[in-house]
């Protein structure tokens, strides 16, 4: 048992109509580390993340975050504990401006899940605004702060979503293919941004297909295939593992 595990997934199992999506998953996410989960399509990577954030309830097993069982909690409760998630397809507020997109999560972090401040002015909450401005600048979107988020390119939407998570200073950040569909330039910018977050000591779980991203960011890699973890270790160990090469890399890498 590792003493400094932020998130532990213990013996988790999930079936979809008789199909075993996850079986006997045991996973320890260590504090301050970037943990990559890789695996072929349909291996159960996104299902695992969905179990972690409360979108899906596991059939068996538990997810423990900082010593607290979070299985069965609602998504907003899990977020309030300090877990933020970037989705595979960007989940942003398309009708709001970039600034408002980032201010909303900043409010959630400051005020908790409910605060019925009907008659205060948005403009009076300078702390929230300032924080949002900083994060937008950080991800390079400050110039578009008053644009509607629907007008952004796909890459920018992903960065905006990342900013929405970062503004909450989560204890654990879950990223589901944060660079999918991005150009090489955008991918490198995102890698750079994620590296800078790592310097701040944020724990991250990252699902990724792009090996370039995995090997430039991850401290530890878990390989998922057919709902099971077949290998775990440092990127180099995993790369050298013949089982992994067979199941995922196809020996070509």
């Amino acid at each position: 048992m590792m003493g400094n595990a932020v998130l532990s997934v213990a013996d988790v199992q999930k079936n979809f109509a008789g199909l075993r999506a996850l079986s006997d998953i045991d996973l320890q996410i260590e504090e301050g580390k970037t943990h990559a989960i890789i695996g072929p399509n349909g291996a159960g990577k996104s299902t695992l993340l969905n179990v972690c954030v409360g979108r899906l309830a596991p059939d068996q097993g538990a997810v423990v975050f900082h010593g607290q069982v979070i299985t069965g909690k609602k998504p907003h409760e899990i977020n309030q504990l300090g877990i933020a998630r970037v989705f595979q397809t960007p989940e942003i507020f398309p009708d709001l401006t970039l600034l408002q997109n980032v201010m909303a999560p900043a409010y959630a972090r400051r005020d908790g899940p409910i605060r019925l401040n009907l008659l205060t002015r948005l403009d009076d909450d300078k702390d929230v605004r300032l924080e949002a401005e900083h994060i937008l600048e950080d991800v390079g979107l400050a110039a578009k702060r008053h644009d509607e988020a629907s007008a952004l390119s796909r890459g920018d939407k992903r960065r905006l979503e990342l900013a929405m998570c970062l503004v909450q200073h989560p204890k654990l950040l879950l990223l589901d293919e944060p660079t999918a569909g991005m150009s090489r330039l955008d991918t490198n910018r995102t890698i750079d941004l994620l590296k800078r977050i790592k310097e701040r000591g944020m724990t991250k779980v990252i699902i990724e297909h792009d090996m370039h991203v995995v090997f430039s960011l991850a401290d530890k890699v878990s390989v998922l295939a057919q709902g099971r973890i077949i290998a775990e270790g440092t990127p180099d160990e995993v790369r050298a593992d013949p089982k992994v090469q067979e199941a995922y890399l196809g020996g070509a890498h």
Binding site: H76, F87, E91, R121, M164, Q168
Partner: peptide, 26 residues
């Protein structure tokens, strides 16, 4: 109400309720 944080959250709900939940709003 429209200019308040509450009003912005309401528009957030209209825009993407899932996201509202996953950034911690009930």
């Amino acid at each position: 109400i429209t200019r308040s944080p509450f009003g912005m959250m309401l528009r957030g709900i209209k825009s993407n309720q899932t996201r509202m939940n996953y950034i911690g709003f009930n």
